[in-house]
């Protein structure tokens, strides 16, 4: 069946819309009573709009996009993992080390030679760190290189 992507998206959005609208009905009435518009009025309208939109998507989906499978999908997963790990390690390892690693891995996976990728990472990490810490006096985490 064509248009699976849109149909699945429509289904997910329908769930989101219903949940969003339902939650809005649970809020206690604000102190002093509602005057025409309560906190739930606007979200309720939005939920209705999204319900209509998601139903439309399921009934009249567009042609499917080309989804990455195999190697490109793996590369994508790697990139996302790199970003998450970067956010995780930024404070413990410090800016220079973690940025060198992140840029290195990303450039390498995008097709650069291994050595060049990490060299680029190191140079840009040091330059950005210097610029931020000394030029703009915004402190980035030092981490391992404590006294740098």
């Amino acid at each position: 069946m064509t248009g699976m992507g849109d149909r699945i998206l429509g289904l997910c959005l329908l769930v989101v819309a219903v949940a969003y609208g339902w939650v809005a009905q649970q809020w206690p009435e604000p102190f002093g009573g509602a005057e025409g518009v309560g906190p739930e009025t606007f979200p309720t309208i939005l939920a209705a709009v999204l319900v209509v939109g998601s139903l439309y998507l399921m009934i009249k989906p567009d042609a499917d996009a080309k989804w990455p499978v195999g190697k490109p999908a793996l590369e994508l997963a790697i990139s996302i993992v790199v970003l998450v790990v970067y956010a995780l390690l930024l404070e413990p390892l410090g800016f220079i080390v973690s940025t060198t690693l992140a840029i290195g891995v990303l450039s390498w996976r995008m097709g650069a030679a291994l050595g060049q990728a990490f060299l680029t990472g190191l140079i840009s990490a040091v330059v950005v760190f210097g610029l931020f810490n000394y030029g703009l006096s915004l402190s980035l985490p030092n981490g391992l290189l404590g006294g740098f």
Partner: peptide, 11 residues
């Protein structure tokens, strides 16, 4: 090449 540039920009 973008392979160097985009990671740097992202960081």
């Amino acid at each position: 090449p973008p392979m160097y540039l985009l990671p740097i920009v992202t960081m």
